[in-house]
Simulated scan of single mutants.
Amino acid sequence: MLDYSKHIDSDLARLFRSGDDLAFKEIYIRYDKLLFLYAFNKLHNEEEAKDAVQDVFLWLLKNRHSFILKTTLSGYLYKSTLNKIFDIFRHKDIVKKYIDAGDYYIDVDSEETDYLIREKDIALRIEQEISSMPPRMKKIYELKRKHFLSTKEIAMQLNISENTVSNQLKKASKNLKNKLGVVIYVLYILNS
């Protein structure tokens, strides 16, 4: 009998796709707890985190034969879990505000619909976190990220030391990473 715990992820994915249930069991054992912790860190709700992870594994089982891995197995599973987390946020009416306001048009048959909704989810979540920062930290962060001022320019404008500006920016970034997760924060920084 094969010892599945010694297989690398790509082998497990290949075996699973070919119908090997023991390979799926090993994937589940290997990633279930890690994905749960990842989801719980974002959702702060144990039941929702469990549901998100179970949905990922259920989808995997249902789509076994069409499952094509274009990245690492862990990357695929984490991204799938993140997508489920976004679905949960959407069900909590995060996007409803944008739809009600008519800020953008959604074509239900469009392949870009899902991407647009997720992008709006992320943007709203980031804005909420920035709004909840202490006033001085928020001002410094917005001057840096939205007005593209240097640390020196911010210090001069607010009549504070560059060191204070740097410390406030570090604290703001750390808080956003903790609350949003590193992946979302990095995507935000790259797109801003």
Results as ranks from 00 to 15, higher is better:
Asn191Lys: 15
Gly75His: 05
Ser74Met: 09
Ile29Ala: 05
Leu187Asn: 15
Lys177Ile: 11
Arg125Asn: 11
Glu26Val: 01
Asp87Val: 06
Ile184Asp: 04
Ser150Gln: 08
Ile94Leu: 15
Glu112Pro: 05
Lys170Met: 05
Asp20His: 01
Ala49Lys: 04
Leu61Asp: 02
Asn167Glu: 10
Phe89Asp: 06
Ser10Glu: 13
Ile94Glu: 13
Tyr28Ser: 03
Leu69Ile: 01
Phe40Leu: 03
Leu43Gln: 00
Tyr28Phe: 14
Ile122Pro: 02
Asp21Asn: 08
Lys171Thr: 04
Leu37Met: 06
Ser131Asp: 15
Glu112Ser: 11
Phe57His: 05
Ala52Asn: 03
Ile154Leu: 00
Val165Arg: 01
His7Phe: 14
Ser131Trp: 12
Phe89Gln: 11
Leu143Gln: 11
Leu34Gln: 06
Phe40Met: 01
Ser110Met: 04
Lys177Val: 13
Pro135Tyr: 06
His91Met: 15
His65Gln: 13
Asp3Phe: 09
Val95Asn: 04
Asp103Lys: 14
Gly19Asn: 04
Leu149Gln: 12
Tyr141Thr: 14
Lys97Val: 15
Tyr4Phe: 10
Tyr115Cys: 07
Leu158Glu: 06
Ser192Cys: 12
Arg118Met: 03
Lys84Ile: 09
Ile99Asn: 02
Val53Tyr: 00
Ile130Met: 03
Leu34Val: 04
Asp100Pro: 07
Tyr185Leu: 02
Ser66Ala: 09
Asp3Pro: 02
